[in-house]
Amino acid sequence: MSEKIFSYLEVHAVDHCNNNCRWCNNHSPFCPEREYAAGEYIPWMEKLEKKGIEYDMISVMGGEPFLHKNLTGFVLELRRRFPRKSLAISTNGFWLGEEQIESYQMLWKLTDILFISLYPNLLRGLKDGGDVTPLLHKITKHNPHLKIDLRQKQTFRMIAYSEEPVEPNTFCGTSECTTLLADGRLARCGLGGYAGYSPNVGEAFRSSKHMFFDLNRKFSKGEFWNWRRRWPFDACYHCDSYKWRETNWKAEKGKRRRLDLELEHDRLAGGRLMALGNFTQAESLFRRTAEKYPLDAALCNDLAVCVSHREPLEALAYLAKALEIDPDHDDARANLRRLRHVLGRGTENARPEVCSADAGVR
C-alpha cells in the first residue's frame, strides 16, 4: 500500500548558479559546475515507488536549473516516467526576456508550477523597473494552467552554524525539503545535502548521522518513516535556520555573479529559436546579448548565422571577428568558407579578413 510521507522531492538539474547569494540554502556559490541527467535520479525514485513511499510533487532545483543545457529534456524525461506527479521548477528568473521565454515553449507545457525568486542584483537588469507581469503572461500563453509563484526577495534568511549544540525551540521548515542526490542518498534538507562544498558549515553539522538516508542499501518502509519523521535530528542542534532571522540580501564574500553562465544560456536560447525557425527573434536576442556581455567567438558566429541570409557582408564581419577572438573556432571557419563560396569571394583556404571595431562589430 502506498502512503504519502512527504509533500515533494527535490532534485538538482545543476548544482551551480549564476548568482552569489550569501546564506544560500543549497550552498550554490561554492558548488562545482555540475549538470545532471534525469536518468541519474529515476532509478532511486523508482525504488521509492516500489516501496510504496509516495509524494505529490517533483521539484526541479539547483543551483539555477535554467543553466542546464537541456532543461526541457530533463523535465520531459521526468514527466514521461512520473506522469501523475506535479512538476515544479524553482529559479531566480535571470533569463526573463521575451525571446528567452519563446525558446522554452515546450518546457512551459510540461511544467505545473514555476517558482521565481527575484533578487535585488538581478532585478536591476530587467526592463520596466523590474515589472515582469507582461513577461509572465507570455509564459502562461503557452500553458494557461501553469501556476507562477513570484517573489521579490529583498531580504534573505541568515543562517549560522555552531560547534556547540543548541536545542532548536521552533520547528524548522527547511527540514521538510527532502532532497535526492544523484548518488542515491536522500538528505533531510538542502542545507545538509550540499554542506560539504561550503567553508561556512561547521564540522558538527557536516558529520550528522541523521542527515542522509541511503537508498543503495536494503531498507524497510518503517525505517524510512522513522528517518523522515525524526525532528529535531542531530544536525538541527548545530544550525540556527529555525530562528528565521531576516536581513537585506547580500552577496557571498569572495563570490561574483557568473555573467559567463548567463551568456552561455542566452546563446543556447538563441540556438533553440533558430531551430524553431524564429531567426528574427534569435537575432534580436543575440544583439542584446552582445550589448550586455563581453563578446566572444561563439556569439559572433551565432550573429553571423542569423544575419547571413539578408546581410552577408555583416555576417562576414562577425565571422572574421570570431576568428580574431578564437582562430581555432571550427564553426566560424566552416561558416566563413561557406559564405565566401556563396559570395564568390575566395577559395576554401582563403585567409579571413580581421574585423576591427570600425566595421561595426562590438
Rank of each mutant, 00 (worst) to 15 (best):
I58T: 04
D266N: 11
T170Q: 10
N335Y: 13
R245N: 06
Q154I: 13
I325R: 07
L259V: 00
V14Q: 02
F233T: 14
K4D: 10
F156W: 06
S86Y: 11
N248W: 05
L96N: 03
W44S: 08
R345F: 07
G125A: 00
A332P: 08
N25D: 05
E223S: 10
G39Y: 09
S208M: 09
R338T: 11
P32H: 04
D240R: 01
L191P: 02
K243Y: 03
Y194H: 12
D112L: 02
W225A: 11
V11Y: 04
E3T: 11
D56I: 15
L316K: 07
K218H: 07
K141H: 09
Q105L: 10
L136H: 01
P83V: 10
W23F: 13
I53S: 00
L259M: 08
D302L: 14
G196W: 13
Y197M: 10
E54T: 14
C172P: 07
E99K: 02
V75D: 04
F74L: 09
S207M: 07
Y293R: 01
T178N: 05
Y318Q: 05
G97L: 04
N92M: 01
L78A: 02
R310Q: 14
E46A: 00
R351F: 09
R267D: 02
S208R: 09
L122F: 01
V361T: 12
S284I: 06
N26F: 04
L110C: 05
A359I: 05
V132K: 06
I113R: 05
R258W: 06
A320H: 11
D330V: 10
L118H: 07
E164S: 06
A251W: 03
E223W: 06
L336M: 12
A290Q: 11
S220K: 08
D15T: 11
E10A: 00
L268E: 14
H137G: 07
L259N: 12
H12R: 06
L186N: 04
P32G: 00
G52L: 12
L299W: 02
E314N: 05
P134I: 07
N70C: 05
R345A: 09
W23Y: 15
R310G: 05
T72D: 02
S198Y: 07
P32Q: 01
Q281M: 14
N349M: 05
H309D: 14
V14M: 00
Y8E: 11
R256Q: 13
A275M: 13
R185C: 11
D234T: 08
W231H: 06
P312L: 07
A204F: 01
K250A: 10
L319S: 04
A204Y: 00
Y318C: 05
N19T: 00
D15P: 02
A359H: 13
S284Q: 14
R124C: 01
N92Y: 02
L276V: 05
A317I: 08
P134W: 13
R257Y: 08
K253M: 05
S162A: 09
W249N: 04
G254P: 15
C189T: 12
H145L: 10
L339Y: 02
L67P: 10
S208H: 09
P168W: 00
L114Y: 08
E64Q: 03
A322G: 08
G277M: 07
N248D: 13
C21Q: 03
E262I: 12
D234A: 08
G130N: 01
K243S: 11
D240Y: 02
N335Q: 12
D56N: 13
W108R: 01
I89T: 08
